[in-house]
Amino acid sequence: MVVIKNVLREELENSLRMRKRYEEELAKLPKGSLVARRIKGHTYYYLVLREKGAFKSVYQGKSVARKELQRYAEAKEFRAKYRKALSQIKRQIRYLQGALRGKEAI
């Protein structure tokens, strides 16, 4: 029994630490997403994001550096990955806390 409890406790510590790390990584990513809009045959770039719960679209110009486009594309990809990871970690935390919250002292 002591082995199982020890493993569960260690895993809970791991998940709590991981939650913090993934939240930090998410905060580091550039906010919003760069989108290209076709208006009357011309392409215009906008940064779309949510601020204080409201949708916002900020004009970026007729062209954006390829590096910048890549940066936002990568951020979008990692944001999705990290959010998925975070949701999995939160489920783990709930499960582990529940498992450790028995009648016996832990």
Binding site: V2, V3, N6, R9
Partner: peptide
């Protein structure tokens, strides 16, 4: 340091 780990190692 943790008894649980020692038990697991021995097992």
């Amino acid at each position: 340091k943790q008894q649980g780990k020692a038990v697991k190692d021995r097992g």
